[in-house]
Design a protein around this nucleic acid. Structure first.
Lengths: 201, 201
DNA sequence: GTATATCGAACGAACGTTCGGTACGATTTT
DNA sequence: AAAATCGTACCGAACGTTCGTTCGATATAC
């Protein structure tokens, strides 16, 4: 059996691994204290890299935040698309999306906090509002298709999407803020059903 | 009838008026650029006062933001309470609250932006999440009473409040982000009805 | 005269960024 | 195959700027 050449035994990560170490550290700190309460020096310490490495990979602090933001939204968008593709019927699809969002909130609260709660326009200049990002566009599209198919009542798509998913997003905020006694899973049925009652034909 | 003495003719505001000039300038700038993108020197310029006056009235930047935040939430809480008191029936009360919020979003978007969209915990240490503030507590209480009265279906009060008002709050965010083609008033019926469908008994 | 309110120059700390340097793998030269 | 060359990745001390805050002076009210 051919030996896989292990080129590197170096202790510190390099290249792509280092880039991801920086992104991970940035996510942790931005999510915990916010963008403006996190200095490049903090990220340097948390990631165990040098200042130079950060600037080499990302150019500056804002572009680092932008790279992180794009990366997370891209992942979320793909996950939501896959979830929708795996179900049929608009009610079931909406439920699957909310289940996915709830699971992500539990399993990866840092990502959710950064994506949902952060005020990106405060530190990302010229960033469009999050509602025009892919995950939100997909959710809105789902409602539009439901309306066209006659499964969702005739109403403005923005209102429909807000009604179907607004409650779920609010519950996620509550969970991230730590005001809910129990995990989000406990509320999934009530949330999905009330959202569906709001929009079903 | 005793004459009310008009004591002052001085050009620059002093005392309470100056305090409010500072709060107004702070609201405008915080709402427009965010807390961290606004310096005390900016507020000084915008309000036309001295740095010393700001520190005399508020102590430091964070306490200024806290005073502003408390002031706005207090006003909102009172307005919502008055609105609820002026209507009967839970559906009508909920509608009146949403109408009030929509009107405030149109007439005073700066306040709404600061109260709704700002990440207060990022700059106000030890501030509880906004959902535990008075306006939100009142809205949750409204749903609780509705459940007790049998007008709202039996469900978790957090879920009920999220379902009833989550869509409306989301629409307000969309409006503040400038993604809606028309004014919020155009959507009030659909928003209220879908919220009510979600929670009515 | 005294207390309170206002003023603004000055300060020190913290921050984002720069830049001259080193480490290292790949490629070419000897 | 060893040496030299090269480009990329990484390093971190140092820099200039900005910011929140201080404080002694000044103005005003009573």
């Amino acid at each position: 059996m051919p030996e896989v050449p292990v080129k590197r035994v170096s202790r510190r990560p390099r290249g792509e691994a280092l880039r991801e170490a920086i992104l991970g550290a940035a996510l942790r700190l931005f999510s915990d204290r916010g963008y403006f309460n996190t200095s490049i020096h903090d990220i340097r310490r948390e990631a165990g890299v040098s200042i130079g490495a950060i600037y080499h990979h990302f150019g500056n602090k804002e572009q680092l935040a932008k790279a992180l933001y794009d990366d997370l939204l891209e992942r979320m968008g793909r996950a939501i698309e896959a979830t929708i593709g795996g179900h049929s019927g608009y009610r079931e699809r909406a439920r699957a999306v909310i289940e996915l969002l709830f699971d992500m909130t539990r399993d990866d609260p840092e990502t959710m906090r950064f994506v949902l709660l952060a005020k990106h326009r405060e530190f990302l200049s010229d960033e469009p509002p999050i509602c025009s990002s892919r995950p939100f566009a997909i959710m809105r599209g789902l409602l539009e298709d439901g309306i066209a198919a006659g499964d969702v009542r005739e109403m403005d798509p923005w209102v429909a999407a807000s009604a179907m998913f607004g409650g779920a997003l609010r519950m996620m905020s509550l969970s991230l803020d730590g005001v809910l006694e129990e995990g989000l899973a406990r509320y999934i049925d009530e949330v999905v059903e009330s959202g569906w009652r709001a929009v079903r034909a």
